[in-house]
Design a protein around this nucleic acid. Structure first.
Length: 271
DNA sequence: AGGCCCTCCTGTAAGC
DNA sequence: TGCTTACAGGAGGGCC
């Protein structure tokens, strides 16, 4: 579920509670996630201090004095920081006990999430190697998007979902950014004009910033670390709004399925 | 290289 | 009411 704004919201929630803490113990209650969670984490992290909590794409990076652990929330993952004596919830798979009586718990019903040891050079880790620019960084420009979209035949929704093109965009924000830029999601990426690339780049940045400001999108189960939902779902223009009137022109919003996943657009506002 | 499909899971809601 | 089915926000890996 979580895309860049939800992961960033999670990072901002947990960072002040984790930074500077020592990890006393790691519990692998259900190590069968996307990849098996290595048992060696227990010894590697024992008594190590958390130095920083960063984000790259949809990965959260816990930098410790022994190296970095990468967390991915998959489609249904969430993090909670609770007192260590709090009863386990079903699907609390991986737990980090801290030196202040609290624990960080990774909760993930669908188990598409991941916990990966990335050592001392996490940015060189295979999983992060091919990832494209952060959309909110100055590396992500219209000129870049225009250049990498040349001769690409795949539709723009799938193109934006490709983490090698741009990091952290998922199905919700792809549809929303394309709506804001007036471009149909089904159009081939290679048919973007320079002007389109400028509008799309601006739209991606603004929709992600706005979503972060509103604490992300809560459609099903995304919650902040403190249990509060995000509010961006109230701002969605097209995602999940099939047959509802476009907020701009009133036309019914359309839904199409491509590659097994739905996208949404306004047939009048988007070309 | 690029494009497409499959897969890993469970929870929820819709449909019958 | 209860059973079955479809669908859900990710993304790496493999195949053509």
């Amino acid at each position: 579920m979580p895309e860049l704004p939800e992961v960033e919201t999670t990072r901002r929630g947990v960072a002040p509670l984790l930074t500077g803490r020592h990890i006393l113990n790691v519990h692998l209650r259900q190590p069968k996630l996307r990849w098996p969670v290595p048992r060696s984490l227990k010894t590697r992290l024992h008594n190590q201090r958390i130095v920083a909590v960063r984000r790259r794409a949809k990965y959260l990076l816990l930098d410790t004095t022994a190296g970095t652990v990468m967390l991915h929330l998959g489609m249904s993952g969430s993090l909670a920081v609770v007192t260590t004596d709090t009863p386990w919830r079903k699907h609390d798979h991986i737990v980090f006990d801290l030196d202040d009586g609290h624990s960080l718990r990774l909760h993930d019903p669908r188990r598409f999430g991941a916990v990966v040891w990335a050592g001392h050079a996490p940015d060189q880790h295979k999983l992060l190697q091919a990832i494209g620019p952060e959309p909110l960084s100055s590396d992500f420009t219209a000129a870049y998007l225009f250049r990498v979209s040349r001769k690409r035949k795949r539709n723009l929704r799938d193109f934006l979902l490709d983490g090698r093109v741009v990091a952290g965009i998922g199905n919700i924000y792809a549809s929303e950014a394309l709506f804001l830029s007036g471009i149909r999601p089904g159009r081939a990426a290679g048919r973007l004009t320079r002007a389109d690339a400028t509008r799309l780049t601006d739209a991606i940045k603004s929709v992600l910033k706005q979503a972060i400001r509103q604490g992300g999108t809560t459609l099903r189960d995304f919650r902040h670390t403190d249990g509060q939902p995000g509010y961006f779902q109230q701002t969605l223009n097209v995602y999940g709004r099939e047959h509802k009137p476009c907020r701009h022109c009133g036309s019914p919003i359309k839904r199409k399925v491509q590659g097994g996943r739905a996208y949404f657009y306004c047939p009048r506002c988007q070309n």
